[in-house]
C-alpha cells in the first residue's frame, strides 16, 4: 500500500514537473466563470473528466498544464451555452470513453450496470430461499 501511495503521489506530480512550459495558464484554467450557476455546471463536469497527462486524476484537481487547458475548454464552452453532456461527447469522440470517469452504457460496459441489479437479485433470492423455507418449516413444527 505504501508503494501504492508513493506511486499515486508521483503520478500526480510527474505531469507538472515533466512539462516546463513558460506560458501562463490558459485564461479559464484557474479562473471561474462569472455566473455561479454556469461555474457549478462546469465544475460538476470537470470533476468527471480525466486528466490526459496525469492519468489518475480528474481535470478539476490537477495542476498539469494540459488539465488547465482542458478546464479552459470546458469553461469557455459552458459560457457559450453548450450542454455539459455535449462537451463530454465532444471529448469522448476524440479520446474514447477513457476520458470520462462516467462510463457510458455500451456493449462493453453493460455488465457494470447489470452488476448491482444481479447482486441485489441474488441476495433477495438467497434470503427468500432461506427465510421463506424457514418460515414454512417453522409453521409445520
Amino acid at each position: 500500500m505504501i508503494r501504492g501511495l508513493i506511486l499515486m503521489v508521483l503520478a500526480m506530480l510527474a505531469a507538472p514537473l515533466a512539462a516546463q512550459d513558460s506560458l501562463p495558464p490558459a485564461p479559464y484554467a484557474y479562473k471561474q466563470l462569472d455566473d455561479p450557476a454556469q461555474e457549478k455546471t462546469a465544475q460538476d463536469l470537470m470533476m468527471t473528466l480525466r486528466c490526459l497527462t496525469c492519468q489518475s486524476q480528474s481535470i478539476a484537481d490537477s495542476d498539469a498544464p494540459m488539465a488547465g487547458d482542458m478546464r479552459h475548454q470546458v469553461r469557455t464552452r459552458i459560457a457559450e451555452g453548450e450542454d455539459p453532456e455535449a462537451i463530454r461527447a465532444w471529448l469522448i469522440e476524440r479520446y474514447g470513453d477513457w476520458v470520462s470517469y462516467q462510463p457510458q452504457v455500451t456493449a462493453m460496459t453493460w455488465p457494470l450496470f447489470a452488476a448491482p441489479i444481479v447482486l441485489l437479485l441474488f441476495a433477495a433470492l438467497i434470503a427468500r430461499k432461506r427465510f421463506g423455507r424457514a418460515r414454512a418449516t417453522g409453521d409445520k413444527s
Binding site: 506560458l23 490558459a26 485564461p27 494540459m66 482542458m70 479552459h72
Partner: peptide, 15 residues
C-alpha cells in the same frame, strides 16, 4: 496554440 486547443481537436494527449 496557447491553449492546446488543436490537441483537443486532434485527440492528441501529449507533445
Amino acid at each position: 496554440d496557447d491553449v492546446s486547443k488543436i490537441q483537443f481537436d486532434l485527440g492528441s494527449s501529449g507533445v
